[in-house]
Simulated scan of single mutants.
Amino acid sequence: MNTARHRSTLLAAAGTVVALSLTACQSDGDGTSSAPTTSATVASSPAAAAPTAGKATGTSGSTGSTGSGGSAVSKGSAGSDGASAGSTGATGERVSASTAVCTAKDVRVTAATQDGPPYTHIVLTARNTSGHSCRLTGFPHIQFLESHKKDVPAVAKSKPATPVVLTAQAPAYALVKLSDGGLDEDNEPVSAFSVMLDGDSTVMAVTAPGSDGIAVDPAKALTGYWTPELRNGADDF
């Protein structure tokens, strides 16, 4: 009689353990959650892919401020890009609309030739040399010649879908067309040119690549938007 009662007690205890195990398994299945997604393009070094270009020879430096065309006409539309509030970048850093816009003090701009002769394009690289992240908005505002005081027009299809946020030491790129490569073009030699960033009136002097500089036809020159990497199709012009 005592043996039967003891067995009943053991079975009841075993049933309780099985029930608790099933309950724990169900709780684990129901508690699974998905990770948040990123809504901003974050360029971090060395993760950003470099474009196919020659050795960069140009450096940028502050040469003062100006009120010329680079800070007026085209900056309004390009500078309106803002990072989505509360989004998380690829590096785990919090990215929001409060992330400061990159200025000439934050980045170093260099120029390199792209492809082989005739050199019809160059690539500008803007590297974040500050110790903090910043948003690089719009496109570079370029003036090649003193005799041609208009910014080089931007190609709309090269505009990235999301804001470009540069972490410390991260680069961004912009493809720039100089000419069509024809012999009958009105090309002019350029050894250095000016670049301005969206939201900053500081003029940066950039040395043209190559020992002989570059040949520019102001009527054919175009620039792309700043992007973390050059993209086939969107940056072909």
Rank of each mutant, 00 (worst) to 15 (best):
S71F: 13
Q143S: 10
P218T: 06
T52A: 09
P160S: 09
T59V: 11
A72S: 10
A104N: 06
E229I: 01
R127W: 00
T66W: 00
P153L: 01
V155W: 14
K220L: 02
K150S: 15
P36D: 13
G138F: 11
T57L: 13
L22H: 04
V190E: 05
M1I: 15
H148R: 11
N128I: 04
A14D: 08
T91M: 05
P189Q: 03
N128F: 11
A156H: 08
A234G: 02
W226S: 02
I214S: 04
G64M: 08
I142N: 02
T32Q: 15
A48M: 02
T227Q: 09
S44K: 13
A154E: 06
K150N: 15
V203Q: 04
E185L: 03
S8T: 09
S33V: 12
V216N: 02
G181D: 04
G31D: 15
A78V: 10
G213C: 12
R7C: 06
H141V: 05
A168D: 06
A78I: 08
V107S: 05
P160N: 03
A174V: 07
A13D: 15
S62L: 10
L11V: 14
A47T: 11
I214P: 03
M204N: 09
G116K: 14
A83K: 01
G181R: 07
A111D: 03
A104T: 00
N2C: 15
S84Q: 12
A174R: 00
V109I: 12
A208P: 04
S194V: 09
E146V: 11
G199I: 03
S71V: 15
T91R: 09
V176Y: 01
G29T: 10
A215M: 13
D151T: 03
S201D: 11
R135N: 05
L175F: 01
